[in-house]
Write a protein that binds this DNA or RNA. Structure first.
Lengths: 205, 205, 205, 205
DNA sequence: TATGAATGAGAATTCATTCAT
DNA sequence: AATGAATGAATTCTCATTCAT
């Protein structure tokens, strides 16, 4: 009883620290952010952070984990339904870009380290992109088999499906103001181009 | 005379250090790479590096500068010629991806810091992407005016032109093996999809 | 009544903690052992330890105290009896070495700190060695007066009486396997040499 | 040339740091002594110490090494000469106790950690005591074979040879003032008792 | 009384930078 | 110009101790 409550408190505090960490790290970068800064921002003592995370690196891994875990659900649903190609594409892309938008600071905090630390990269990759690839590859194969798509390497095509949004993310991370400001327009635009690319010259406005 | 020779020597040594820096930084990341490591890899003493660069950060800026300066040439050429749209696209994309391939380690070294340091990002952006955007935007406007392209925001479209290769770069940086291995196939594939997107269902090889 | 019972409980728990402390400290050394480790080993919470000991150092002093207090009895007995020299020697040495054997972990826990902390050293010295010295000095003087022993400084001789067993203890603490394994043989051997030294070329079994 | 000189300087500074370390550590104990204290005492910056020793523990190992290396010479000599038993004993004991006296602070610094850290103990043991034991055991066997000594386990006897001086060292480490003050008398006294023990009721003063 | 999360002082260690040679 | 030892600020992390529950 009190145990459950305790657990809730602990989880809450853990998340508090993670949220604080995201903000500061997104601003200054992981390596340039000290535990002291994170602690101060979270309103706790330095040592407290070590009650929740084994070390500074673990904090980053926890960020990746928190990012990858709950979102997975959305994908599973997409997988189970036998979707109309158009809907499939839309769902997939929208979901990707919606997450990039809502979790932008997390990506900003994580991605630079991800490029530098293979373990972290693998963690993020396995958590977010691998599943998408698998679904996409599977789906694309179906389309090819049904003759709705010209034959090609599904691995390549799956990656091309993700590439535009990833590219926009990277450019935004590198400070592209227009992408930052007009993210939603890009969301639409990407969907449009992908539709055209993968489903032929479709009829749209 | 002796002065010129001196200058050449100095430039050579500077580049020696930069090349060493790229290798080590690409492997371990900028923050995790110490001046000592770079110096050792370059075969000079720690202090020597400070004869060529004001401080560690300057080294990174020098990398960006060296990356942006000579390559600009390729773009200028593209700009001056009144190109056939198909050729324009091909040239642009190929050039982008060729550079990403040949300078991969530089990108690996630079980009994580770029995401974290706005000044650096600006430097890279202004040096590499802004010019491309300007040319592309300008070119796309022409196409629209000529009715060869449906109307749309040229800023968005220009960025969509770059996005796929940027996305592939990011995924490769994050350790995607297939992209690393089959970069050339992706180069072709990107060109194909962009052609289809921007120039309609074109005739492919 | 309930008070007495309470007191017993408290003493029991105190000893529980001390016993746990001995085990962990003997294994890792006092400074390298954290309160957390001791608490865990004792099956109590960190804070609980502070209900029984003012601070970490007090725990060590308590160990010394517990070691010195009850054992004193054995000495008193030795003192009161007018012993045959041979028996005196035997009793004294056996008792020393028996205690070293049975309380080895305590010595292992205490002695390193004892060397470093004068107060602690004094505590142990006054509790264990001083009394022995006093008895021994007194006894040796008697023997000299009776001409049974060549004249000499009783302080020196008393210390020489203890030195061999102390030396063996130290060597064992430093990891001498043979001494650890064959402690009993050493007990005999020490007795034999001391007999020869202090009581002349005696008749041995 | 300049290289040799450099090397000398480096060795000198290393020894400067070691000497400073001995003084401070002997006073407060290794764990309670911070690198800062040692650096201050040595008149160098904190970081400088890490130019000479990989970490704090290495400093301790260096102390042991410096203690064990040069002294070994004395033993080798003893080994090669076919000594008169009396002379052998005297040399051995004197050497031991002379070293304990002259290097007392080193022992004070080292021994507590030695008890707590098996690796360190092994290092000291192998460096100082093992050689003595080997020589002594070998020598004692000879004596036994020649019938000059009653038969017994040479391992035990060798250790009994060392035990008294070790015991005195320990007692002195634990703050025994008389031993500290009258070390030389103890040196003589130990020799006398060992002579009596191992060589029979010898004729002396 | 017992608990164990929070605290923050203090320790070891790293490393960019300087500067005497 | 090149060197590399010295520096000390800054960082991560530990852990004795406290205190609200």
């Amino acid at each position: 009883m009190s145990n459950d409550f305790q657990q809730t408190l602990i989880t809450a505090r853990r998340n508090l620290i993670l949220d604080a960490a995201i903000e500061v790290i997104a601003q200054h970068g992981f390596q340039r952010t000290s535990i002291k800064q994170i602690a101060k921002h979270a309103g706790v003592a330095d040592g407290t952070i070590y009650n929740y995370f084994k070390n500074k690196d673990e904090l980053l891994h926890a960020l990746v984990k928190r990012l990858t875990e709950p979102e997975a659900i959305n994908l599973q649903q997409a997988q189970q339904q036998q979707l109309d190609p158009q809907v499939f594409l839309a769902t997939e892309v929208q979901e990707q870009m919606r997450q990039m938008q809502s979790q932008f600071d997390v990506f900003r905090a994580i991605i630079p380290e991800t490029i530098v630390d293979a373990t972290l990269a693998r963690s993020l990759y396995d958590g977010i992109y691998q599943p998408v690839f698998e679904i996409a590859e599977c789906y694309l194969k179906q389309l090819m088999d049904q003759g709705k798509l010209p034959t090609g390497d599904p691995r390549v095509m799956a990656r091309l499906l993700i590439a535009p949004s990833m590219g926009l993310l990277l450019m935004r991370l590198m400070g592209d103001d227009h992408i930052e400001t007009a993210w939603e327009s890009y969301q639409e635009a990407v969907l449009k181009t992908l539709t055209r690319t993968f489903l032929g010259d479709s009829d749209e406005d």
